[in-house]
Structure formats: structure tokens, C-alpha cells
């Protein structure tokens, strides 16, 4: 199988580390060669963060470049727009509609672009957008946005059995938060 590329994008602190850990675990159990790449340190402090998850028969580069992503999984709509160029022409976006103002917007130096979702859709790419924050809160915590997104993403992985997702969640989430996260995953899946 040729290598598939997933990008997880968002704002530092939103929970992309758990999302990539879970995907990495899941894909490893499916006997793929897997690489997961993330950046630590300064950018994690509320900055724009990106994680790459790649899988296939043999994966070489740990990074995803412009026009290479099969999936962009995004926690925030401005970040979806920022990384759009990395999507393959026939790639799929799964995005939360949440908006988080970056500092230049908070200070009034710049404005948050309006109607971003519509503008992204207008480029002709495939977009699956949902209010993940609302669903996460419904599951019991605003921090569970990552599992809502993964639940939604699971729709596009037809050859992976639901049991494998459940097993990956159990392996990666602390027992204390397991039920909450499973619920968030289901809400995302059914949305």
C-alpha cells in the first residue's frame, strides 16, 4: 500500500498529542509501518501546532509536505485554513468549527477572517465540519475535542474494525477518563 498521510493541526494545548498517540497505536496494531512526528518546546505554548501521522507498507519521511496530506484533522478553523495547502487535491478535511483568536487578533492588530468554512469549501476540497467543542462538552469535558474528531475521522477508515478503535482508546486514555472519551468518540462518529 502506498503511504497515507494524516496531518493533525490545532492550537498548542488542545490535545493533538493524545490524538496522534491514539492514531499511531491504532495503525501499528493494523500491521502498517507507521511514523508519527510532532514538535515540542516553544510552539506548544498556545502557538500553531502540527503533528504528522503516516502509514503504509514502508514509510520513510516523518513529515508531510504541501499537497501530500490525505487527511487534515483540525481542532480550529483558522488552522484548517493555514494548512489547507498541505491537502492533496482529492484529500479530506475533518475539522472542528471552533474559533480561537490568535494574539494578533486579540490585540487588534489583525482581524479573524470571516466565513472561513465557506471559503475553504469554495476551493472545492472535501470538508467535513462539525462543532466538536459542543459535542465534547456533551460528552463531559471540553478537553475531549480530540476524541470527537477521531470519532468523525473513523468514518473514512472503512477497513479498520470498530473494535480496533476501542482497543486503541483503551490503550491510550487513562482509565479515569475512559468512559468520557469513549462517549466523545461515539458522539463524533454519529454526528
Amino acid at each position: 500500500m502506498t503511504t497515507k498521510n494524516i496531518m493533525i493541526v490545532g492550537v498548542g494545548g488542545q490535545g493533538s498529542v493524545l490524538a496522534s498517540k491514539l492514531l499511531g497505536h491504532l495503525l501499528t496494531t493494523q500491521n502498517f509501518d507507521v511514523k508519527v512526528s510532532e514538535v515540542h518546546g516553544m510552539s506548544q505554548r498556545g502557538g500553531s501546532v502540527v503533528t504528522y501521522v503516516k502509514y503504509g507498507d514502508k514509510v520513510y519521511s516523518p513529515v508531510v509536505e504541501k499537497g501530500e496530506a490525505d487527511f487534515i484533522v483540525s481542532f480550529e478553523i483558522l488552522e484548517t485554513a493555514r494548512w489547507l495547502e498541505y491537502l492533496k487535491p482529492d484529500g479530506q478535511i475533518v475539522t472542528s468549527t471552533q474559533q480561537i483568536d490568535p494574539m494578533p487578533v486579540l490585540t487588534g492588530a489583525m482581524t479573524y477572517p470571516e466565513n472561513l468554512l465557506e471559503k475553504i469549501q469554495a476551493t472545492g476540497v472535501k470538508v467535513d465540519a462539525l462543532d466538536c467543542l459542543k459535542l465534547a462538552e456533551e460528552a463531559g469535558s471540553s478537553k475531549a475535542v480530540n476524541l470527537v474528531l477521531l470519532g468523525r475521522l473513523s468514518h473514512y477508515f472503512n477497513d479498520i474494525k470498530p473494535g480496533a478503535w476501542q482497543e486503541a482508546i483503551e490503550a491510550c486514555v487513562p482509565p479515569k477518563f475512559l468512559e468520557l472519551n469513549k462517549k466523545a468518540f461515539e458522539l463524533g462518529k454519529q454526528a
Binding site: 492550537v11 498548542g12 494545548g13 516553544m42 510552539s43 506548544q44 505554548r45 498556545g46 502557538g47 500553531s48 509536505e65 504541501k66 499537497g67 501530500e68 496530506a69 483558522l78 488552522e79 485554513a81 493555514r82 489547507l84 495547502e85 498541505y86 491537502l87 492533496k88 487535491p89 484529500g91 490568535p102 494574539m103 494578533p104 487578533v105 489583525m110 482581524t111 479573524y112 477572517p113 472561513l116 471559503k119 475553504i120 476551493t123 472545492g124 476540497v125
Partner: peptide, 20 residues
């Protein structure tokens, strides 16, 4: 050869790291 994707014709505000 090089791969490219679609780009928005829009000014995207940067998101630098900030103090928590």
C-alpha cells in the same frame, strides 16, 4: 517535480506561541 495544494486567497493571522 513538486506537489502543491489549494491555497486560500486570504490573509491568515499568524499564531505565535504565547504565555499561558
Amino acid at each position: 517535480s513538486k506537489t502543491t495544494g489549494k491555497k486560500l486567497d486570504e490573509k491568515i493571522p499568524p499564531r505565535p506561541p504565547v504565555m499561558c
